[in-house]
Design a protein around this nucleic acid. Sequence first.
RNA 1: CGGGGCGUGGCGCAGUCUGGUAGCGCACCUCGUUUGGGACGAGGGGGUCGGAGGUUCGAAUCCUCUCGCCCCGACCA
Length: 437
Amino acid sequence: MRLSRFFMPTIKENPSEAQIVSHRLMLRAGMIRQSSAGIYSWLPLGFRVLQKIEQIVRQEQDAIGAQEMLMPTIQPADLWRQSERYDAYGPEMLRITDRHDRDMLYGPTNEEQITEIFADAAKSYRDLPRMLYHIQWKFRDEVRPRFGVMRGREFLMKDAYSFDLDFDAARRSYNKQFVAYLKTFARLGLTAIPMKADSGPIGGDMSHEFVILAETGESEVACHRDLIAADWGNADINTEGDLQPFIDSFTDKYAATDDKRDPEAEKALGDDLVVARGIEVGHIFYFGTKYSKAFKAVVAGPDGSDVTAEMGSYGIGVSRLVGGIIEASHDDAGIIWPEAVAPFKVGLINLKTGDDACDKACEDIYRQLQDAGIEVLLDDRDARAGAKFADMDLIGLPWQVVIGPKAVAAGVVELKNRARGERQEISADAAMALLTA
RNA sequence: CGGGGCGUGGCGCAGUCUGGUAGCGCACCUCGUUUGGGACGAGGGGGUCGGAGGUUCGAAUCCUCUCGCCCCGACCA
């Protein structure tokens, strides 16, 4: 992509409405624009990141056998009356009426919808287990949206739902999601700590929040020091095997969100206790038959008797993660993207657009990188060097290749690593080798 | 929902107390000089001050109502 043609409206000054760093940087980097409180448009740069994250989430869901589908954003109120959540959910649910005066709503989540679909189709224990998910926009009419995409009213969420024959099977599904979450967040470059959590309005008795630590986190959390240093999700695990011992190795250690903290346990930890601010990026629940009962998700068991499906639901705030990653990875100059979610891998800066030698050197490398399948953003604008450096640092691409008259004369390019700040002058071929490794 | 703050060219702000017909920086356009960390000079375009009503000879400024946005707290992917 050529920056001269890319729609990436960067802003030099901090917009006054943005108070936290991720919100500021997303606005300044031209990733998002606000439409109204808690509702955002995703501009090309931001949308690329959103899609990268979505794809990683998708791959890890697929890897544990969850199947992707897509449910609507607008749901009929009757569906929610059946689970008795229509009134219970309160003003956070956006209620609307269609032209025939039917009560509808913009879905804040999809337990009802999926359970109805599943109940209608599943007849036998042979139809279990099943795990289904979709990645869809949700709307929760938060009293107080804030922090940019971190607490929007409209947000993109991956929500998965499991259906099992009995508690043990449901536990296995829960555990698979647990591991998938560890892997997902590890791939995103995050240390997400599973913490015992309240099950909230969804109900149930087995629940973990996945929390990343950041100064601007919304609530205070506490955990054992070892959990922060743990090597998440990189373990080679067979998700078809017994995951319990692996999961216990995490959950044995103290980790609790705000409302689950235990002063005595914390005292016992002594120096191993870490208290920090946290951002919730995922939440998994087991909730038994709460919905399967309401929607009669009942199958014939092996002995012919009726069995009500055991369910769980598993959410990841995909759009929130964009902000969360920035909170966890930035410096004074701007964003520092982990390579896995960077909108482009390489930012190629032509320091002197219009200079034949510089133009040619840039075009060569640009072509080579593209041929190698590497996403590259070429700054071919007719702007001053300082502006180009500043913009490139701001948008935080992992690698910068800088080409100016001096480098061209010397037959080298300057390669800069955004995260470490290291620069090296090497041949174009050597740079290519490094970037394509 | 309780408490607080703010709406003035694209962005950041001053002007509001003490009414007199809108200003600064950045950005943008043109020309020239520049060109490795957000250049300099000259010229230029763009706002009737969130909206409605009122007071007044006269309202960004005073009064009433209203809409929106942000922050703190209580609640949540």
